[in-house]
Write a protein that binds this DNA or RNA. Structure first.
Lengths: 346, 346
DNA sequence: TGGGGCTACGCAAACGTTTTCGTGTTGACA
DNA sequence: TGTCAACACGAAAACGTTTGCGTAGCCCCA
């Protein structure tokens, strides 16, 4: 087993100095052609590759970006990552991943672990617990130490950093408008509690769409789901709530859910009750994923273009790292949503 | 903006040497209690954290493991990653991710990018193209340089390294046996072409189960799907094939598919043709994911315990890195599968 | 023959740590 | 007063690079 070869070893072997080897490999004309080719041949033979860690230390940059997300087993986040990875790789960066599992503590630990020189900057989406606690000291500290952060999707408005968000409100409006225009009169909303920012915004979009179409909102048509660590329980509870809702409000002919899973759950309950979809009840979900695509019937959704979000985030971060954009200038990019019409809408 | 503080700065500020600071922070009794507390207080005040890169260079270990997977927008792989990340974090390691997108070239580039000192070892699942080309030089080179590799799921048998695999054959047998025992007489198989190792093994399991139950296999009941870069097209083609199959072989009363998506596709076609599921046709998929869980009806599956695979892989790699296991000793761990009975089986 | 100007290389510092070894000061004790 | 141990600290090397600068050797020309 031949260990990795270093400049020093090459130097020793060829009886020249380390600096000569280094310069020869970079084809400096300070070194004679003769020596250059000798060194290069030797380096090639032994498959020399400069040690990244040494370079990082010297250059004070790692060419690595840290990504902290709440969870990875989630279509949206994994799509964002694939976008980040693509753009990062194109520009010669690596991606290191930390998962917060929606926990404040894990988010803090992950950030601290990476902030000590391992990476050049962060791309992250804030954990729910953090949003609930509203404790953002770890973000401030990171930024204060000169490490740029790009937040995506779940952002904290009061923090001065780059952000990439989806236009939740207008996305919801799009969805609800579609339902109304296709003839729905009584549209139920399945959303989250208000502390989840995106849920709140999507709720606002729903209300605005109703208003603009002069439909009176009815609070009895809105379910605000209580999050639960155990998704199974959350969904089971939701099933009961939806079932009760459909029993009580017979006039419901449209459902807008703030995510796929809520929508699928609603569809399941409705189908079990014998409703025809989309003839009797139309359904649209925010967030487009595999579930929607392959559901039977396939679900109409609002796509948030997760891959693009990832790409844009990476672009913003790297632009800042490479000083293509001034340090103190923070932007918020809004990614537009698209309505994907499938089989649950008319 | 206060930059990261270093030992040198603390030393200068407190008018002692760098080594004194270092020792004081590690509570060496070589340093007087007085100096120690002074240094520690100062370090705390300025939130000193040792620079990871410098430590990596010094210690010749990065405490980071590289993970190369074919794609991340895939329930199985993201689950494996979450398992890896969990175990790695528990043991103080970071995880850096590379995506091959099933491409040989990207796999090679990713490995080369990370092998130059950035990480201590690899966990990877081989890209399809690599399996097709059977060009494994990049794996050999990596191992030769003393960097351990753990392969999971899609492994190369001929390479001497640790492996974590799922027992594909027995998993398939379990599924097909279940179908037979619940009364199915004519079980169709939807699988991949044979060069995909796991597809091949699962096909073998199907055949063995039939044999053990004295059912004559019929090649007319088997669809071997031609992979396509464009999944849409692949699935569309598959739909037609399944449709033709169901039209031709009216006696089919069970379907076993080597992955969720194939199973869902089959279910879709069957439902459209008016079959009752599971009464007229039972379906089981290899690979358990969101799709199966939330399909309507929910799909019975063979779970491969992806999170556990990730954890085991990480454990094996780290054990080797920390020399808990001898370097030259390679193991192959087999993760057992579990049949999850849902609504597509009787 | 002396000086100037190349050429081709080596030295050393720097990045931020840790650790081994050396050393100056102090105090105790004979 | 001389010796020795203990104490408290500093210097320097090492990890693997890159790069500015110094310089030995040579040739050329006056």
């Amino acid at each position: 087993m031949k260990r990795k070869v270093t400049l020093k070893q090459i130097a020793k072997e060829l009886d020249v100095s380390v600096s000569t080897v280094s310069k020869a490999l970079r084809n400096s004309k300070e070194i004679s052609l003769d020596t250059r080719s000798k060194v290069q041949a030797f380096a090639k033979l032994y498959n020399y590759r400069p040690n990244n860690i040494a370079l990082s230390l010297k250059n004070k940059r790692t060419k690595t970006i840290g990504v902290i997300i709440p969870e990875i087993v989630h279509h949206f986040f994994s799509k964002v990552i694939s976008g980040i990875e693509k753009e990062a790789n194109n520009r010669g960066y690596n991606v290191i991943i930390g998962l917060s599992n929606e926990s404040f503590d894990k988010e803090v630990i992950n950030i601290e672990m990476l902030a000590n020189g391992s990476i050049d900057g962060f791309i992250l989406s804030v954990a729910k617990e953090t949003l609930l606690l509203q404790d953002y000291h770890h973000f401030y500290e990171t930024i204060n130490q000169g490490m740029p952060i790009v937040m995506f999707d779940r952002v904290v408005n009061e923090i001065a950093c780059d952000k990439v968000v989806v236009d939740d409100k207008s996305g919801s409006k799009k969805a609800v408008a579609k339902l109304i225009e296709s003839g729905c009169k009584n549209i139920a909303l399945i959303t989250t509690k208000d502390y989840v920012n995106v849920g709140k915004l999507r709720t606002q979009g729903y209300l605005q769409a109703l208003e603009e179409h002069k439909v009176e909102p009815k609070s009895s048509l809105i379910i605000k789901v209580e999050e639960n660590k155990d998704k199974e329980i959350e969904i089971e509870t939701l099933e009961k709530e939806i079932s009760a809702l459909l029993d009580k409000e017979k006039s419901i002919d449209g459902i807008f859910a703030v995510n796929e899973l809520y929508a699928i759950t609603a569809m399941k309950v409705a189908i079990n009750k014998g409703y025809k979809i989309p003839e009797e009840i139309s359904i649209i979900a925010f967030t487009d994923g595999v579930l929607s695509k392959h559901a039977i019937p396939s679900l109409s959704t609002i796509s948030q273009h997760a891959v693009e979000m990832g790409e844009r985030s990476a672009t913003m971060l790297i632009d800042k790292l490479e000083e293509i954009v001034e340090e103190e200038k923070y932007n918020t990019e809004v990614i537009n949503t698209t309505l994907i019409e499938r089989d649950t809408t008319r």
